[in-house]
Nucleic acid binder design. Structure first.
Lengths: 214, 214
DNA sequence: AGACCTCGATACAAGAATGTATTGGATACA
DNA sequence: TGTATCCAATACATTCTTGTATCGAGGTCT
């Protein structure tokens, strides 16, 4: 987690290995991928790997740390953007507003098909690896917090109210997004970007809100 | 798929291996589980395994065939039950009706934590295994068909109309269910049963329908 | 420039997993 | 009872994977 102490070279190597891991995991699964394969994909040898990580689990750990930290930055930036927006006027048309909101919140999260698949793979891996689960759960909860904050803002801005408990609303949206991403990734080549049509989520979100406007 | 030609003994062995596979997959992941481990869990040796399956993929295939055929039977039975109900009266209170419907449709599907996790594991494995994906997709689509049929019935019975396209409605419900099942399975021991509180799904479904009643 | 240090490559040993070929016990059948 | 068949156990050869211990190139500091 603390990359700070590491030399630039080392940081670069680690990050290359992490990226390679994602690519290989998407094809072979986490346990199906040998350390050797990952190193090969990264252009290193196993020597480099074991000099940087104690083993597979530590690579996974580095992967979720890096991924989450990136996602959190994106979410925080989005929160900022929407906070600004709060002060400068009306939402305009509802459809457009929600579409923009959903796109902003969810679509920056993941890009290539490989990343989507690897993310699901990692989720399961952490679920069944006691040493990894607590950290995974912690990092997930940070993301949920941010998303909740975003949704609260947006709802307030739209002068609306959630008609179901907020946690349920959020988990529904993330579930739908996560499934949609996986479906979209299924067909594609690994490095194709995954585009998720926001209309399903928009429609559902719209239906789960009450609008006080007259 | 055609167990018909097999002797009872052979059928029993295969099914034991399939069950053992599910247990082991849930702990080790599909690629993390050695054939040996699966056999050990089943009380057989590798000789039995290779006498029954050509390799890991064929075991997975047998697993999804067996699982799906069971699920389809359940769904068909549920469809029957609801068709009967159509003829014998009013839905009564809406909340109760939807709760019963959701429970009926989704809750019989999966039982233990191990099964939930293994199911997700298998989904990803099939996604990245070209030889398995077509069959997996085919079997999934049968299930979707049944669920769609159920939902159509229920909506009609409740004298309601979906306010978003039916496929979107269904995929939303399955996504929510699937995520809820995984979350519920996460904490538990492998053979504990997973209970999914239907209220989230009920509330959302209710919000996604328009009721023509007066 | 020279000594030091960092970091990845190489070589090696040990262990794990796979798949096959063969064996032996049980069961069905005549 | 004898015999043929089926099916899982055993034994074995091979390949894959892992982790460590060592080496050496390239950079850094004085």
């Amino acid at each position: 987690m603390n990359d700070d102490k590491l030399s630039a070279r080392r940081r670069q190597t680690r990050s290359t290995l992490v990226e390679a891991g994602i690519s290989v995991f998407a094809v072979k699964g986490i346990d199906g991928a040998s350390i050797e394969e990952i190193c090969e994909a990264a252009g290193f040898t196993r020597g480099a790997f074991y000099s940087n990580f104690s083993g597979r689990d530590e690579l996974i750990l580095a992967t979720i740390e890096s991924r989450t930290s990136h996602d959190l930055d994106m979410l925080d930036a989005t929160i900022e953007r929407w906070r600004d927006r709060l002060s400068c006027g009306q939402p305009g048309d509802l459809e457009g507003f929600l579409t923009e909101f959903i796109t902003d919140t969810f679509s920056q999260k993941v890009v290539t098909a490989a990343e989507v698949i690897a993310e699901h793979e990692i989720e399961l891996y952490c679920l069944r690896t006691p040493g990894l689960y607590p950290r995974y759960a912690e990092l997930s909860s940070y993301q949920i917090e941010r998303i909740q904050s975003l949704i609260e803002n947006a709802i307030g801005f739209a002068e609306a109210a959630a008609t179901i408990p907020l946690p349920d609303l959020i988990s529904a949206l993330t579930a739908i997004h996560s499934q949609a991403a996986l479906r979209a990734a299924a067909g594609k080549r690994l490095h194709e970007k995954v585009e998720i049509d926001p209309t399903q989520m928009v429609r559902i979100l719209a239906r789960l809100l009450d609008f006080d406007r007259d």
